[in-house]
């Protein structure tokens, strides 16, 4: 964990108390911050229960970028292969179509019914989609999400 400002955490728990997900799940942000200083928590399922609402970061009396720290921990987890199946699907959509949520037939029909033309996105421009795919290859994203 490279985020050195979390060393100033004094474990007050404002993060946990502000967490909308923690009301219903086992996500305990204070504990995640504490544990991340001592050990590798890449396989911890709670990392993925954060909605990234930023309440913890906003209210931290130490000004620690708590949500950003969770994002870094997630990146470390992803690099070690801890990627949830549903997230892998979203990543594959991005690689295939340039969209995390691609169009489907139902929504094509909805568009036609309200007089909207085809979307002007990468979907319509093959060269643009090719560029997006090339970038994903270059950044190593394709390799990252391989099972």
């Amino acid at each position: 964990m490279k985020n050195s400002d979390i060393l100033t955490c004094f474990q007050c728990g404002a993060c946990t108390g502000s967490c909308p997900s923690g009301k219903y799940t086992s996500l305990n942000v204070r504990r995640i911050i504490k544990d991340s200083l001592k050990k590798d928590i890449s396989d911890h399922p709670d990392l993925w229960m954060c909605t990234t609402c930023y309440n913890c970061q906003e209210r931290c009396p130490r000004g620690i970028k708590v949500t950003d720290a969770i994002l870094s921990l997630r990146a470390e987890a992803a690099r070690k292969g801890h990627i949830l199946p549903a997230h892998r699907v979203v990543c594959k959509f991005l690689i295939e179509t340039g969209h995390a949520v691609p169009i489907d037939q139902i929504n094509m029909t909805k568009r036609e019914n309200i007089g909207l033309l085809e979307t002007e996105t990468v979907r319509k421009y093959p060269k643009a989609l090719k560029d997006v795919r090339k970038l994903l290859e270059l950044t190593g994203f394709n390799g990252l999400i391989q099972e």
Binding site: T52, L71, H87, C91, E120, V122, L135
Partner: peptide
């Protein structure tokens, strides 16, 4: 309308996974 745009890419999944990819696609 902005032509040829892709997914932003979404901050939840893609920013979590790899900052470099997230930044590169957003930059495009």
């Amino acid at each position: 309308e902005l032509k040829e745009a892709s997914c932003c890419p979404a901050p939840g999944v893609f920013r979590s996974f790899d900052q470099n990819t997230w930044l590169t696609l957003a930059a495009r």
